[in-house]
Structure formats: C-alpha cells, structure tokens
Computed example of a mutant assay.
Amino acid sequence: MMAAGLTFRLARAAAFAVVCLVLGVVAHVAGGGTVSGRAAVFGLVVASLVVLPATGRERGMSVILPLLAGVQVALHLLFSTAPVLEPLVEVGGHVHTGLVPGVGMLVTHGWAVGLTALWLSRGEAALWAVLRRLAVRLRLLVIFVSGRYGSPRTGHAGSSAPAILRPALLRHAVSGRAPPPAPVSA
C-alpha cells in the first residue's frame, strides 16, 4: 500500500471537496434554496478539512460513502441556516423549510450520494492503479539508469564480454500441435 505525500493529499482533498460542494449546491438550488458565495467558500473549506485525514492512502466505498453522506448533511445544514432572501420557498409543490428535509429531498440526496460515492470510489481505484504502475516503471528506470544491472547490450555492469542471447523458442513449449502423422504402409 502506497502512502501519499502532502501535496497529493491536498489535491485529493480539494477534488473531493469540490465534488461535494458542487453536488450540494446543485441539489440545494434545485430544491428551491439559495446559496451565498460566502457559504459556498466556507463549505469548501470545511469539506476539505474534514476529508484531509482520510486522503493518506487508497480508500474504498466503505469509507467514501459515509464520508460523502456526512459532508452532504453538513453542507445542507450550512446552506439551510445561512441567511437567505426568502426563508420559505415553494418549488413544484415542494416546500423547503430549512433544516428538516422532506422525503423527496432525502431520496434525492440518497441517490446522489450513492451514485457520487460509486463514481468517486471507481476513480480512486483507477488513480491508485495508475500510480502503482508508474511507481514500478519509475523504479525500473532508476535501476536501469543507475547501471546496477547494466544495459541489455553489454551484459552486466563492468563486463566487457557481450551478453549471451537466449534463443527465441520457448524451452517448455509444445511444438507438435498438428494431427498425428498418417501411418506408413509398406
């Protein structure tokens, strides 16, 4: 398991916080609420600080889903308690009363959190797979450049004899895959 450096951890926390903020703002505005710029910036900072301790290594769905749900609840409370122009807004028969969400809002938040957590966990797995592959390739490049094993043309480092090339045929390959020959008649 690879550990992440501070810069990488900050970038991951910022990406997670931006996804949380965009999801929260879009859902809040679609539900009839308003979001001030100050509340959005504060929400971004809070989400980044909450998520930062979890960015040290690869995380799966079991960590991402509750973390995303918790940040969404915090953002909903923040946006609902922030001063707004109209405290009670009716949009399409849905009354947004502030802190207590309706059943429709809970279902919508649940689906949004579930799908976003799935998306983030898949992205997390892909990111760490790429980083592991890059680490292996970088390690091989460092070994090759340092001369520890020499270049493929000259054999081992410090050796003046040319390298012995292996035959192209595999040692343990089955070479007769055709039907058996017909019996010879005399």
Rank of each mutant, 00 (worst) to 15 (best):
S121E: 13
G60I: 06
G155Q: 04
I143S: 08
G70V: 08
G5I: 05
A157Q: 08
S36L: 02
T81L: 15
H28W: 13
V91R: 13
L169G: 07
S48Q: 05
V142D: 13
V26L: 04
R177E: 05
T55W: 06
P162N: 05
F42N: 06
V73L: 12
S36N: 04
T34Y: 00
R57E: 11
P179E: 03
V84G: 12
A40T: 08
V50T: 10
F8T: 14
L68H: 10
V142P: 00
F8R: 15
R153F: 09
L52V: 09
A168Y: 07
G98E: 03
L67T: 14
A126W: 06
P152A: 09
V18L: 15
P83G: 10
L21S: 14
E90A: 04
A30Q: 14
G24N: 10
A14D: 03
A186D: 04
A4E: 03
V91T: 13
L118G: 15
W128H: 11
H156F: 06
G24R: 01
M1C: 01
R139F: 13
E124S: 15
S175L: 13
V107L: 15
V84T: 15
Y149H: 10
V35N: 00
G102W: 00
A163G: 07
V91G: 02
V51K: 06
A182P: 02
L169H: 07
G123E: 07
V19P: 03
V71W: 02
G56S: 10
G104W: 03
R137S: 13
G92A: 14
L68S: 09
S160W: 11
P101H: 02
L141D: 12
T108L: 05
P162L: 13
G176C: 02
W119S: 15
L170V: 00
H94N: 11
L127T: 11
A135D: 15
W119K: 01
I164R: 09
L115D: 00
V41S: 05
L78R: 07
G158S: 02
V63M: 08
A168M: 07
L49D: 08
A74M: 15
G92F: 10
L120E: 04
V103L: 14
A163L: 12
L131I: 01
G32A: 09
V142A: 15
S48R: 00
A126M: 09
G5S: 12
A27H: 12
S121L: 11
M1Q: 04
L99Q: 01
A82H: 08
T97E: 12
A182V: 03
A15K: 07
A161T: 13
A69M: 04
I143T: 10
